[in-house]
Design a protein around this nucleic acid. Structure first.
Lengths: 192, 192
DNA sequence: TGGTTAAGTCAACGTACGATGACTTAGGAT
DNA sequence: ATCCTAAGTCATCGTACGTTGACTTAACCA
């Protein structure tokens, strides 16, 4: 048993963030109330506004994702290695903090709200795509990079958001091989 | 000038559906109020419930999409022809009724709501994927079909929902060639 | 012209929401 | 033991929402 109540701002803030992650992931932004999140932690709803300012800022901080360092800092690392990792992280990994989903997909769940859409676009377009583009061959590497991003994001949507049958049942290894084949076909220098 | 007010149930219903399509496409399900939609038509909000039962049923009917007949009724039609058409319809076409977006993407905007998610999954998994799968070569055609669907859906998200720069500026023809290359690589029989 | 049907309106209910500001209470330092 | 700061609470405001049932009014037919 833990002692009944310890006053610890940092811990309470962290608990609120965790509860918010679960709720937002499961129910989306509009489907989640501040009162719910506070009740999960056993705390008054007013604390949320004390610590985060508004529901919007709480969401923004809860789903913010740090791009893993070491993924792209070696410029010689081939594109397929990066997509292997991202396929695992975005499509197959079990993000316990977010009820199983990758935070990018949690954001997409609430893509009706412009602020969340902007956050998602910034994360993808400025966080991931440049690393794709600079490893991409052929003409218009930016377009090809966005197609790789579209493939991974779309697979995440299909599997984790929609629960499409084949992707839900597929093994990571089998899927990885197919994605690698596509990425290779895209980054190929030859015109056809 | 049209005469000031004609009482016509069918016409009013259709106007409500059109207004709902625009609002839902622009603002999502939760961001749109029944009062707004009714005001666009110049009609009392209660009419919405008279004609559609509830806001949920209005949305369901507004974004329901008929899969274009003639697209897949010829079993000899190659997969790349179908993906060409879908790339145009889902990613590039300007759906005026839906503020420019394809109805599938309008649904995805409100994917926080389970009923809408179910509708979206049914449309994709039962409407489009079987036609992909039966034209797909290699092992596990269902998985490969879902990857084609993921690519197209993801490109729609990137271009029309997020407004990613490269896809927004790209020509249909240039993009079509790249998609065709990917679909060919996927449906190829050879193991590598 | 009167009456019936259906299209459209009106007023309101109940609820849930995000947010605010004043208050209370715990806990460590003096 | 006391005071002070900050963690947490309480009551409440205003608003917007989906939805309902009773009412009004227009159009068509006899």
């Amino acid at each position: 048993m833990d002692q009944p109540k310890r006053r610890d701002k940092a811990a309470t803030r962290a608990k609120l963030l965790d509860a918010a992650r679960l709720r937002f992931a499961r129910q989306g932004y509009d489907g989640t109330g501040v009162r719910e999140i506070a009740a999960d932690v056993g705390v008054d709803p007013a604390l949320v506004f004390r610590y985060f300012g508004s529901k919007e800022q709480l969401h923004e901080e809860a789903v913010r994702v740090e791009i893993p360092a070491g993924l792209t800092d070696d410029p010689a690392r081939p594109l397929t290695h990066i997509t292997d990792t991202l396929l695992h992280d975005v499509v197959f990994a079990d993000w316990e903090q977010f009820a199983g989903e990758h935070p990018l997909l949690v954001m997409l769940r609430s893509a009706g709200r412009p602020a969340i859409r902007d956050q998602l676009r910034t994360q993808i377009c400025e966080g991931y795509l440049p690393d794709f583009a600079e490893r991409m061959g052929g003409e218009n590497p930016a377009l090809r990079a966005e197609m790789v991003g579209a493939l991974l994001l779309g697979m995440g949507v299909m599997r984790s958001l929609l629960g499409s049958p084949a992707l839900s049942d597929a093994s990571f290894e089998e899927t990885r091989a197919l994605v690698a084949r596509l990425v290779t076909a895209l980054s190929d220098q030859s015109p056809r």
